[in-house]
Design a protein around this nucleic acid. Structure first.
Length: 465
RNA sequence: GGCCCUAUCGUCUAACGGUUAGGACGGAGCCUUUUCAAGGCUUAAAUCAGAGUUCGAUUCUCUGUAGGGUCACCA
């Protein structure tokens, strides 16, 4: 049996899939992954992707969270064709409730009030108490004996429909053909099918996706480090990387391709290759995919990327008198180690950037290269001083034209370094210029700083000795 | 606990019932190099257990085990 046979929907009907979050908190990658799958599926079949805000819980739903959802979807480039809010549909829900009650399929039930806020009367669905079997595209047939569900509550009152009722009515009214959602909804499905049968709604095609798990292998949640999608935006992640990675959690194309444009995903995606078992969300892998897209953009549109990159740095850097002239080279060097753009902020905070613009301070001993680099030669602070004096002289004697690029600086200075001690001279020079154990090579730095400042920094180093 | 779902390297995963069980991320090592990063090469690492079906099981069946989900007047 396939899904089209099971469902009483016509298989020539246009696909209408939906993403139906409730605006009661910020949503994380696990939530948005279901949006990705729904979107890809709908677009693959030239169908519609609907966003439905499930805000029937007035007490917990807020406009801010709703905006957060819209912002994320827009950032991820998952545009919806239509948006609905359940709260705007209460009249219709009421109409259905009234009809259900009139037909004896639901009833007003007197309740014992145990907690504050509980109603003395609610509306319960009259459970036909049968076994419901439905076909899930991901898992095949699933059966439940609904007897254990009893007569479940579908509304607090005529004006206050609850989740199951609202979902079924709205899916029906909106013409939803495919319900693609998380596995945590599997056990809700029989209830919803029962309601659907009671109101004469067609049964949609169900696809329950495996859950996205936190590293502790339980459901992803805020407490377990799941970040709101907007955090990735704030940190300057590439939305293409998120989409790419989320698509690959619980789905694979069956080939060894790992990077996909959105259009490629749309054409490659299918529900048949969706995994049954839940998966871990791996921030490290996300980082590596992000870096791939970051580098790609840097290669394609360096100007644009540079603008974006430095918008994450403080004015101490971007308003520095040398910033504009050094920006390009610094960007190039910084890009070699960034996984995501916002990391530049971290680099600045940990003091990895300052030396590009200001005289660094450091301990004189740092000018001494490691034993390994000395290759048996005895190098003392005095020797280092001689190296620095020598290299400074060389630089002072260089034609200004030679400073325009690192290669010409290297071509001029390397023979000199070799004549004394390559490792010792270059290490000391680099430290004098950067003050850092780890930094770009000395030729790049000399070319970046120019004659005057390079000499100044070398002089500073000599004064330490 | 009841019900439901799931089970391949650390992680994400591939493999018409027949493969030296493949790839990616991460790890390790080597090369390159003045440092770091990048890059190149190499490498370690898995079919939950036990029965059954079969000439042959990662793949099918059953049992066990483990993990997860769900049991609201939340969604």
């Amino acid at each position: 049996m396939n899904s089209a046979q099971q469902s009483n929907l016509s298989n020539t009907q246009k696909v209408v899939a939906r993403f139906a979050p409730s605006p009661t908190g910020t949503l994380h990658a696990g939530n948005y992954r279901t949006a990705v799958f729904s979107y890809l599926y709908a677009k693959k079949y030239s169908g519609e992707f609907i966003l439905r805000i499930e805000d029937t819980d007035k007490a917990r739903s807020t406009k801010e969270y709703e905006e957060n959802i819209m912002e994320s979807l827009s950032w991820l480039d998952l545009p919806f064709d239509t948006i609905y809010r359940q709260s705007e549909n209460v009249e219709r829900h009421k109409e259905v409730l009234v009809k259900l009650i009139a037909e004896g399929k639901a009833y007003i039930s007197k309740e014992e009030v145990r907690e504050e806020g509980q109603r003395a009367e609610v509306i319960r669905f009259k459970n036909p108490n049968k076994v419901v079997t439905f076909f899930d595209v991901v898992r095949g047939n699933i059966s439940f004996d609904t007897t254990e569900l009893k007569d479940f509550v579908i509304a607090r009152s005529l004006e206050e429909p609850l989740f199951h009722l609202a979902v079924v009515v709205d899916d029906f009214d909106e013409g939803i053909t495919h319900v693609i959602r998380g596995e945590d909804h599997i056990s809700n499905t029989p209830r919803q099918i029962l309601i659907g049968e009671a109101i004469g709604a067609p049964i949609p095609i169900y696809a329950h996706l495996p859950l996205v798990l936190a590293p502790d292998r339980t459901k992803l949640s805020k407490r377990k480090g799941a970040r709101p999608m907007t955090d990735y935006k704030k940190d300057g992640y590439e939305p293409e990387a998120l989409i790419n990675y989320m698509a690959l959690i619980g789905w694979n194309p069956g080939t060894e391709q790992e990077f996909f444009t959105k259009d490629e995903l749309i054409s490659e995606f299918n529900l048949a290759r969706v995994q049954k078992s839940s998966a871990n969300f791996d921030e490290v892998k996300l980082l590596s995919i992000n870096r791939h897209y970051l580098l790609k953009k840097y290669l394609e549109k360096p100007e644009e990327l540079m603008e974006r990159l430095w918008s994450f740095a403080s004015a101490d850097i971007t308003k520095h008198s040398n910033f504009e002239s050094r920006k390009e080279v610094v960007t190039k060097n910084v890009m070699e180690r960034l996984s995501y753009i916002g990391e530049i902020k971290k680099m600045e905070e940990t003091g990895e950037l300052a030396f590009y613009f200001e005289q660094p301070s450091y301990m004189a001993e740092l000018l001494l290269c490691s034993e390994k680099m000395r290759k048996g030669v005895n190098i003392t602070l005095q020797t280092v001083k001689e190296y620095l004096v020598g290299i400074q002289k060389e630089i002072e004697g260089m034609d200004d034209k030679l400073f325009t690029n690192a290669e010409s600086v290297k071509a001029t200075l390397m023979p000199f370094a070799d004549s004394l001690h390559r490792g010792g001279v270059l290490w000391a020079t680099r430290i004098a210029l950067s003050g850092k154990e780890k930094s770009p090579d000395p030729f790049t730095l000399i070319s970046l700083f120019g004659k005057e400042e390079s000499v100044k920094r070398l002089q500073h180093a000599q004064n330490l000795l």
